[in-house]
Design a protein around this nucleic acid. Sequence first.
DNA 1: GAAGACCCGATTTTT
DNA 2: TCGGGTCTTC
Length: 729
Amino acid sequence: MSDLLAHLNAPQLAAVTLPAQHALILAGAGSGKTRVLTTRIAWLISTGQVGPQGILAVTFTNKAAKEMQSRLAAMLPINTRGMWIGTFHGLCNRLLRAHYREAGLPAQFQILDAADQLAAIKRLLKNLNVDDQKFPPRELMHFINAHKEQGLRAAQAEAYDAFTSRRVELYTEYEAQCRREGVVDFAELLLRSYELLQRNEPLCQHYQARFRHILVDEFQDTNRLQYAWLKLLAGRGSVIPESSAACLFAVGDDDQSIYAFRGAEIGNMRDLQREFALPNVIRLEQNYRSHGNILDAANALIQQNRGRLGKKLWTEAGAGEPIRVFEAYSDVDEARFIVEELSELVREGVGRHQIALLYRSNAQSRVLEHHLFTQGIPYRVHGGLRFFDRQEIKHALAYLRLIANPDDDTAFTRVVNFPTRGIGGRSIEALQDAAQQTNSSLYNAAASLAGKAGSAVARFVRLIETLRSETRDLPLPVVIDQLIDKSGLRQHYLADKEGQDRLENLDELINAATAFLHEESGSPSDSSSDGEVAPDGGPLASFLAHASLEAGEHQAGEGEEAVQLMTVHAAKGLEFDVVFITGLEQGLFPHENAAQERDGLEEERRLMYVALTRARRRLYLSHAQTRLLHGQTRYCLPSSFLEELPATLLRRINRGGGQVSARPTGSPGGEAQTAVGGLRIGQNVRHARFGAGVIVATEGSGSEARVQVNFGAGGMKWLALKYARLTPA
DNA sequence: GAAGACCCGATTTTT
DNA sequence: TCGGGTCTTC
């Protein structure tokens, strides 16, 4: 055990060995947060304060959950597989599988991922003859999810106008459709299990008594429902919990809260402090990742935000190099510079995978990719299509879902005519009508309507029936193999000259099922350990849940020695020796849309803070005077965030090395521009009220002359030269 | 049922 | 400008 606590710094040690009470740990970037979390669990267990079954550890991503589990397994001589360590969604799924009856769900309930949910909503709107121009499916989906994340059912939703009242009706219809089909979406997993615990007092008390210690990672990212769920399980109380309540150990960093747009409530941190009457907050401020200059810059930047819990990162490592700032003429010039610079670093021996190119929005990756590609530098873009999102995988899984649950209309619609088997729009509409008449599923309608044994619909029904009966007792991988065969998927992709990759992916799916079974058999099921959890829907249902909840590794080329490209959001939690933060321009980063949002600029600043703190040794900040956006050249001002960094930490760098990149003649746009009233496009100007800006366009001449100026945060303005007092800056 | 025309929108995203 | 999504046509 002394080993366990060795090498912890004082605050880390304090957090790990905190007596049984609620706590909030403010863990800065690179401060050893995961270490504290896992060591805390190991310490609690190894000192006999709690058994492994008394721990509930919650994360947001599967990656974090796995990491916690494997680190724990290395620290403790116990099987961590059966422990309740997982994502909010994974744990809720587990709860609902165990108590599906009490939760009012079928044993084989399926989970809709975002794409399935959207498809389900589109189908709903079609069935109800709702104009999807007036009620865009995506918007409705967001409406429904946002309500669920607030813990609101349709009945509780506020219908403040006619439009919203209709949306609430559609929310109701959507709930009914999900119930009919035996499916739950992601938000439903949480809401349903919250309601289960809230309404079923004995069950709730059972879990409250079981989980003595609840540990939450990335607490700043919790939404209202997730916080309510935690409070319910912890049985809210005072500092020393009553015997019936668990200890809530929340770890988070308000400065790294960057997911407000998907419902994260930064206010949950203060609420936690207040509602659980936390006497103090433990701060982990010593950073083990970055050099001093980088931390000083990050500290200075984030200090501009108001209402922080407050925290200042420091390091024992030296100041390190200055932060390099580069101003490019254009986005292309910026990419050129970055690629040149990183090529030099690679020549000096920096591993390519230790270099990250960060950007605010995905569209920015193109120029970078183009230059990397032409220079023959291997790179990997994070955030692409994931394994279980691929169409061929979704098709195969849809067959599997139909076998498990014939009422799943989403699955039915996906594969009824894929591969094509002559069931066109007419047949499907007929089925939909019939299904609506009898208030049953499409599959049922198909089965009863398929009188003519020879019809395509009848053949499809027979296919599913055959698959179901013939594969009942076969192991999952064999089932999948047969289904790929008999459904005609294999044949279809075999015939497709570009189907090779897809066939390989289908084989990979079979492998995934094999691997899944192996892992499953390695973990003792709950029913055997304490008898409280009823058996779930079998390996088929749990594999399908696994496929929905875990989208799979990102994409091929995983292990390759490649430069890493990703959005700043995607970079959270990662670290690299060298980081390039690109596109630091007003309107891009901070993003112009953020100006409209409540506390938008502060969220952008936190995003910048996250970006800065990814770097271990070297940090580049770049911006361009000109950028191609939506097919048009935009003239850009440097990001205001650059000014918020202490100049002493920065070093402006001039265009590197050998070839002189020709400065575009005339304006940055290239073409010679007509000067209007002595002003030209691309010129920096100053306005008495709006401040500094760049001229973006001109119009008219003489006393009619107008110029469009990008004032960055101040927005884009057309000004008549006659009235506006613009001075060259 | 597949290929081509056409229109619209365009931060960030895990589960 | 580009890509996705829908609509149109053979």
